[in-house]
Design a binder for these strands. Structure first.
Lengths: 227, 227
DNA sequence: CGCGCTCGGTGACCTCGGTCACAGACCCCG
DNA sequence: CGGGGTCTGTGACCGAGGTCACCGAGCGCG
């Protein structure tokens, strides 16, 4: 089946399927047509993919890299809402394609990013006529929604040390990030994060180096923060 | 109970269309079939419609009353995520129907509630074959999602006095609720809400009576809270 | 090498919001 | 009318976390 007619398309075709197995069920002809109209976009690390109050021009499917979707406060503080990873689409775009409103958050490339943007008309058509894709998009919505609800709960009720600890644990044994970046995930400020990290270090739970945090005792970090 | 169905069905048919005009486009036969399988449910004020970690048995369309969807913290504090009003469906249910996960929040009837529950199979079928409904559900998702994102921002960055003030303004000139209930919307506690309300009253922005807050100066409330 | 930048550490200080403990105030109802 | 619930007002206290100011350590680079 894989007859190459155009040099560029075939690898893309493959990569898309790799990241989005849902398209395997799409008849070859339609997939071909889809890829013909979709554009492959790249953005460098730090590039702004979308911003509050911008319309959007296509539904993005992420192939490579990761996108940070965050809210920014007037005073410069930020909070991470969620990350878009390869194999996921950006849900916000979906909402704004299907509907009405503009983006209400900012999307920044955390690393160099490659994505396929499906033009609105094609997206509509897919949603309409390709059930697996619809299911895929729906599942994503559902997931994001409950993530957001979790996040609300966390921000409303959990203390910052707990939240930081959880962040460290779930982001693996070695985190390469400045304290500022960690603060920007939590919606806090650098000094506080530094302070807490320091206190974790004093208890032997982590090791601190420049731009790097190493988790030494995940269990203690996960446990209750009383002292 | 379901042998009076003939009597019940006709008004129900009408009421559903009234609240959910989207069904006007559904062929009469299919609507008939749908209503045949759907159940009309009622719950008294205060009834728990769903709870964290419960599966769900149908997609609810709210006809009457309002449902409070909230997260509860172990220590008893609560925060309102959103309200479901007549003419809306409960989005969480959608996610959990289409997918996987259980509820991650609690739904409580704020007043006596009437809803039509569409069984999963019918819901699937509607989503699949009835484009306006699909669009309706999608739009709801998008809307809730951005509401949740707003809420995250608000909880993370706004002070409680601002949030309370906004709540009062947007809930109309007269709010009939205990301070405790207001606190439960904001994710705070009674004493603090009382304190803030008192301070609003001292500035002449509201009038306080038992179980009632009257907004006197919406503009001042909306304005910056500095002083 | 020395300059300048980014990153991290720290202490003083403040404020918002939560906690506790009560005391009236209001209200329904027996 | 009296008494027990619910609602609200309040004061003392405290702790988490934000703000400010500043410094020093590491690092890249001409």
């Amino acid at each position: 089946m894989p007859d190459t007619q155009e040099n560029e398309k075939q690898p893309l075709h493959k990569r898309l399927l790799e990241r989005f197995p849902v398209f395997a069920a799409l008849p070859a002809a339609r997939l071909e047509a889809l890829l013909g109209e979709a554009q492959l976009l790249r953005a460098p690390r730090g590039g702004i993919l979308f911003d509050a109050n911008q319309p959007c021009r296509g539904f993005p499917l992420l192939l490579e890299g990761s996108v940070r979707v965050a809210k920014t406060a007037p005073n410069g503080r930020e909070i991470l809402l969620y990350r878009v990873e390869p194999g996921q689409g950006c849900i916000l775009s979906g909402g704004c394609l299907l509907g009405h409103s503009d983006y209400s958050a900012t999307g920044i490339a955390e690393s160099d990013v490659e994505l396929v943007a499906i033009p609105p008309a094609r997206f509509e058509e897919l949603m309409l006529g390709f059930e697996p894709f619809r299911r895929f998009v729906f599942a994503m919505y559902g997931e994001r929604l409950s993530e957001m609800m979790e996040l609300v709960e966390e921000v409303a009720f959990r203390r910052l040390d707990e939240r930081l600890a959880r962040l460290l644990v779930q982001r693996g044994p070695v985190i390469a990030a400045t304290h500022q970046k960690l603060a920007d995930e939590l919606g806090s400020v650098r000094e506080i994060v530094s302070r807490l990290l320091r206190s974790f270090e004093e208890r032997g739970w982590v090791r601190l180096e420049r731009e790097r945090v190493t988790v030494l005792d995940a269990k203690a970090l996960s446990g209750p923060q009383k002292d």
